[in-house]
């Protein structure tokens, strides 16, 4: 058997699988987005931009996603960074791995059940009851943008901590010593050395979380109570309830395009930021 045939045989199952289950389905979505809706739902072949012209009908879902995805990403970053810093710089090697695994493990467990836990905590008998007990007026937490934000932070924090930890862990600790030996105050060392050198980790973490948030369905469905909905919720509605495949496809294509556009702009921005970083580290 030549090396060529061997490689072909090794790649054939994966290649066929990707073709049938990814390339063909995605092409169908693209084609359907230019079609029309059948009388009983489904799809009627056509070539029209009507579905795209109709996008403003789902503007609220796009608006919520484009507000809560960046806000959620930034909040997760603000909470994750100090923890990643603590794990990478302050914790002894013996505990580091264990503590890191403890952060990551929740991410691989069912996000459905973890979000469900917050119905408990934020619902009437949970934290609001506690607040009332202390003596403050009761507030409503569940089914608000706040509860969705809590769910997002809770769900995606591990994904944010990990890449930042990796970049801070790789950081040469002698740089920090050198900085303080040269008389820099701790915050100055942080701003001029630690933070710039951890930008690749921040960039990766933010991108991972942001991408996943753009397609989020479960967290708003469980903690938003139908009042706070994302594009994902609109998609479920269009495909599983109203069976409007043509319009649903147009929404899905738009989601991917918006996502790719945001990520591209973001990567450009980050590339420029880390180009500046070289200047900083040279000083």
């Amino acid at each position: 058997m030549t090396q060529r045939t061997r490689n072909f045989l090794l790649l054939a199952p994966a290649g066929a699988w990707f073709l049938l289950m990814l390339v063909v389905p995605l092409s169908v979505v693209l084609i359907f987005s230019f079609g029309e809706r059948g009388a009983a739902g489904g799809y009627v072949p056509a070539f029209t931009f009507d579905q795209y012209a109709n996008l403003p009908a789902r503007w609220a879902a796009f608006r919520n996603t484009l507000v809560l995805a960046p806000v959620g990403t930034l909040s997760a970053l603000l909470i994750a960074y100090p923890l990643a810093y603590f794990l990478a710089v302050r914790v002894s090697a013996k505990w580091k791995m264990l503590l890191l695994v403890l952060v990551i493990v929740p991410f691989w467990t069912s996000i459905l059940i973890r979000s469900y836990a917050w119905i408990f905590l934020l619902g009437g008998r949970g934290i609001p009851a506690l607040i009332e007990f202390i003596g403050f007026p009761a507030i409503r937490l569940i089914n608000t943008p706040f509860s969705v934000l809590v769910g997002i932070i809770y769900g995606y924090l591990p994904l944010m901590v990990f890449p930042i930890f990796v970049s801070l862990d790789r950081l040469d600790k002698r740089l920090l010593e050198a900085s303080s030996d040269l008389g820099a105050k701790p915050w100055r060392t942080f701003l001029q050395i630690t933070l710039p050198l951890s930008i690749p980790g921040i960039a990766t973490g933010c991108m991972l979380v942001f991408i996943l948030l753009m397609g989020e369905y479960l967290i708003p469905a469980i903690l938003g109570g139908g009042k706070v909905f994302f594009v994902g919720n609109a998609l479920v509605d269009l495909f599983l309830q109203s069976r409007n495949w043509a319009f649903g496809s147009a929404v899905a294509v738009t989601l991917i395009v918006v996502m790719l556009a945001t990520v591209t702009v973001y990567m450009r921005f980050m590339a420029r930021l880390s180009a500046n970083r070289d200047d900083v580290s040279l000083i």
Binding site: L22, V29, I211, G215, V236, F239, G248, S249, L255
Partner: peptide
């Protein structure tokens, strides 16, 4: 890259209407 980047929900939709 496409497989790991696109949201799960889009994989679901595409598989549904494709199949």
């Amino acid at each position: 890259n496409v497989a790991v980047m696109i949201p799960g929900i889009v994989i679901g939709i595409a598989t549904l209407i494709g199949l």
